[in-house]
Amino acid sequence: MSSTTAALQSRRAPARKAKAGGRTSRPAAGKADAASSPLFSYVVSLADDALVLGHRLSEWTGYAPTLEEDIALPNLALDLIGQARFFYAYAGEIEGKGRDEDALAYLRDEHGFSNVLLAEQPNGDFAATMLRQLLYAAFMHPYFQALTASKDARLAEIAAKAVKEMAYHVRHSAEWVIRLGDGTEESRRRAAAALDELWMYTGELFEMGEGERALVGAGVAVDRESIRPAWDATINRVLAEATLERPAPCGMQSGGRAGRHTEYLGRMLAEMQVLHRAHPGVTW
């Protein structure tokens, strides 16, 4: 493993770019308030997904089942937190009110977060963590691939970096799901239980609101429904190799995009935001 701390030097958010011109196109949503512009909301939701799941993964640090995983899990977390930072930085620029990545991450309440419910689910056991990662990454990998063709140059640029990271997340989580599914009786039972519990949160990955649909129409965002064949193919392949059965269609949970979360997110944010909020306005 090379020094990831050193690598962080280059993980900083990209330099601010001129907001006008280039390939950047704004959908004509007709709203004067940029804070509620579809593009701002969309970019924040991409950031929230990444931050919330990245934070969850970071909770594992030092407690993983093997030393190798104690190194791999923070890697996954760092990728996602890095993605979140790029997206938040961009969202802040779109908004133009001086909110930076930390203002967006630390000073919004639970109801302001628009991540999918899947991302906030607790780590559970290692099987639950790896299944959550597979279900998410199998979606985000092809999603970012498609987003590299966005008419919004900034989004395309962030996606190009993220797509490589998500390919690794798919590989890593798939390997573990296969090992656990086709491992011992206990690991199989745990993997099957985790899959069963998480399945109802997968429908939300494909949902789009009106604003996001408009962005898809403008060639800025990606039609989430178009990702389904790729997601299905990955999930079916991995589950088959893991000798796990794909759950039957069931009632799907959603609400995260609109700020209606499961009970878990509030506690997670309370911990994440406590220090930042205790010292308003200072530099860390």
């Binding site: 493993m1 962080l8 900083r12 190194i71 760092l78 937190i81 930072r85 930390d102 930042h276 010292h279």
Partner: peptide, 24 residues
């Protein structure tokens, strides 16, 4: 999980990860 900024969070996470690598 309580690091006060995203930059610090990433820095600390990477540092702790490095220590695991040293162990390895």
């Amino acid at each position: 999980t309580r690091a006060p900024s995203l930059r610090r969070k990433a820095g600390l996470l990477a540092k702790v990860q490095d220590e695991g690598g040293h162990g390895l």
